[in-house]
Simulated scan of single mutants.
Amino acid sequence: MLYELATLSIRLGTAAKAIAGIDSYVKEPTAKGRLLGCWASEIGELNRLVVLRGFADADALAAERTRTLGTTNPFHCGEALSHLRLESYAPFSFLPPVTTGKFGQVYEIRTYGLKLGGVGPTSAAWEAAMPERAKLSPLTIAMYALDGPQRFTHIWPYASLDARAAVRTESVAGGVWPPKGGPDWLTGEMVSTIGLPTAISPLA
């Protein structure tokens, strides 16, 4: 399984139209992949829609990328779009495919820069730490970038912002998180977005 994270920067007042466009775009007969999540940014860079899709293999991902790059109306949001960023990811090897469903009212989408060679050690550190960390709250996915700067992105659902703060405090206080040795491979570059599931999001 491979993933695409698309970030759509949209003009003011166009969110409803853009979300409807995304819904129709991913359902077209020629579309590849499966819609997993669609969030509207609440904290972080605003006026953003973040779309997570899963693909069976590299060929399917490449075909869909070609479709998106070949149109003046990507995600059927051409009039609403001011910028589009497309990123390709592979999951940490120990993780199962993303499971959709109702998991939280807010999602954190966080990206860290990685040092050279950091994918393997980071994945191993997460694999060791996740059994205990998952007892506090579920992980949607952790995945490393296949293009652009070396980095990895992880997505977590929470019942609320207060619940997020409480879980993060408890995980650090209990020595559960961050994964032991994991921060050694980070560059210090990081960005986080708090997104709210849209009406079309299978992850809600």
Rank of each mutant, 00 (worst) to 15 (best):
T140I: 09
A90T: 05
Y144T: 02
A173I: 01
T169A: 14
G101D: 08
T68E: 12
V50I: 07
I194K: 10
V106H: 04
F94P: 02
G174T: 01
L69S: 11
I141R: 05
F94E: 07
A6E: 05
A128Q: 02
K32V: 03
P157T: 04
P149C: 06
P202I: 03
A80D: 10
P91N: 14
Y107M: 15
G101L: 07
A18F: 07
E4D: 14
N47M: 08
G21V: 02
I10V: 14
S201P: 13
R164M: 07
K180S: 02
L196Q: 04
Y107W: 14
T100H: 06
P29G: 08
L2G: 06
A40P: 12
F94Y: 09
T169K: 13
T140N: 11
I10D: 02
L146Y: 01
Y158A: 11
A166G: 04
C77L: 03
S41A: 11
L203W: 04
I155D: 09
A56D: 08
P74F: 00
P96E: 04
R85I: 15
P97N: 10
E28Q: 03
V176C: 05
A166N: 04
L146C: 03
C77H: 00
A125I: 02
E64C: 09
A80N: 09
D162T: 06
K102C: 14
I109V: 15
M1C: 12
G54R: 00
A173G: 02
Y25H: 03
S137K: 02
E79M: 08
Q150A: 13
R53E: 08
S24Q: 10
A18R: 03
G37W: 01
P97G: 08
L35F: 02
S9H: 15
E170M: 13
G101A: 09
G70K: 01
P183T: 08
L5P: 11
P202F: 06
A124Y: 11
E45Y: 14
G188A: 13
L12A: 15
E189F: 15
R133F: 00
E108L: 10
P97C: 11
L61R: 01
A90Y: 05
F103T: 01
S82G: 08
I155W: 15
L203A: 03
P96H: 12
K17V: 08
A16E: 13
